[in-house]
């Protein structure tokens, strides 16, 4: 009806204009153990110093993570697919421009930690 040139083509119409591998400079390889969506990202001194030289999407992450931000928050704030955010954060971490504080796998089974969270929530008003 609108005469869109792609109408009726085999390509699904809801695909983002910017594909993930474009955003990540061709790298679609996630780290061996993908960074958890709640992992905390903090820009390093090196990242602050290098910010101006970074390509735009990396620069946005470095600017956002001056204060600690979770991977999922990076994705939400910069409107990135969470998989893309992960790849970009992994690249920044590899280059030492951010530090990623990943959750401790043992914590979920540590009664002392769970008890602390219980006390913290009980204190909410």
């Amino acid at each position: 009806m609108t005469g869109h040139p792609d109408a009726g083509s085999a390509e699904p119409s809801d695909v983002s204009l910017v594909r993930p591998y474009v955003m990540t400079s061709g790298s679609s390889q996630e780290p061996r153990s993908p960074i958890e969506i709640e992992a905390q990202v903090l820009t390093s001194e090196l990242g602050l110093a290098a910010a101006e030289q970074l390509r735009f999407e990396l620069r946005d992450i470095v600017a956002l993570c001056r204060c600690t931000v979770a991977v999922a928050e990076v994705a939400a704030a910069l409107r990135l697919h969470i998989g893309v955010a992960r790849v970009l954060i992994a690249e920044l971490a590899d280059r030492g421009l951010v530090t990623v504080h990943r959750p401790d796998g043992e914590l979920g089974t540590d009664p002392g930690t769970i008890e602390r969270i219980i006390r913290g929530l009980e204190a909410l008003r």
Partner: peptide, 21 residues
């Protein structure tokens, strides 16, 4: 499938932050 993932968080204490997904 691409889906929306909603989340929020609660600061438990100085060291722990609880995320809700």
């Amino acid at each position: 499938t691409t889906v929306a993932l909603d989340f929020g968080c609660i600061t438990v204490d100085d060291e722990l932050k609880l995320y809700l997904f």
